[in-house]
Amino acid sequence: MNQTLRYIGKKLLWTIPILLGITLLAFALGLIARGDPAVNRASADPDYIPTEEEIQALREELGLDDPVLIQYGRWLGGVLRGDLGRSLIDDKPVLDELLRLLPNTLLLSVLALAVIAAAGLLGGICLSLFRDSFLDVAGRVVLVFLMSVPGFCMAYFMIWLFAQKLRVLPTSGADGPENFIMPCLAVAIGSACVVIRLLRSSILGEMGKNYVLTAQAKGLRRGQIILRHVLRNALTPSVTYAANAFGGLLGGSMITESVFSIPGIGSYALTAISKRDYTAIQGYVLFTGFAFVLVCLLADLICAWLNPKIRLGG
């Protein structure tokens, strides 16, 4: 237990330089990218062209003329006090906005992860159980097909089928749980297919190992062997993949959010980037960076639990 805590502590300490690095990088990218948040703020109304003086006044107000390192330092100081700053465009506190949008993104990601895990486990086990049977071959063809369909095509297809033709689900919005079914499937299907394939091949890989022979000789049936012996050893690559996918989802899925009109972190970041809203981008990068590190840590812990050799440092 102590060992685990120390491990977690070490990992968390490591996130600090990582987060510093990526936020600094995000700040630096702002230097390279063209576009000025002051201009964007002043010209929110497309029919209005701001004057040079207005823009300059805004730049001064927003502190955009200070050297980049000072701007970064100011931002970092705020972060240490728990203040992510205010949007350069609409002046809303970044933290409040992220927290407002987080529940949608979180709900979508967690549901998607559940779909990925459930479909991945079930599919992976089924396909490996009936290896080379019709189900396996047909299933793999379907998987390749589903994997190659871009998420937004899947989204449009589902809208057409479930909302327009069958009218069982609402097209878009984030009003109730039923609104999240299609978006969740749209973001999950691709990853779920990958997990099914990964799991199938790692189960089959494990099936060739000697311990499986021992298990067979005990009189265990194929299904029992997969569930009790093989699965645990075969899960690691799938867990790592699913964790990566989940980490990505926590950063918001911009396309799915926009197709289904779900206000989430992804669309927030998209707007922030297009408007060069550096504080918002920084907040987003910090948040997603932290979420990603946490998810990876969780995945590490799961893998260690699955694999005693890692856990016991053997």
């Binding site: 000697n210 311990y211 021992t214």
Partner: peptide, 10 residues
Amino acid sequence: NPATSLNPGV
């Protein structure tokens, strides 16, 4: 191969 004939994860 006794070393590999036991399940390493159990």
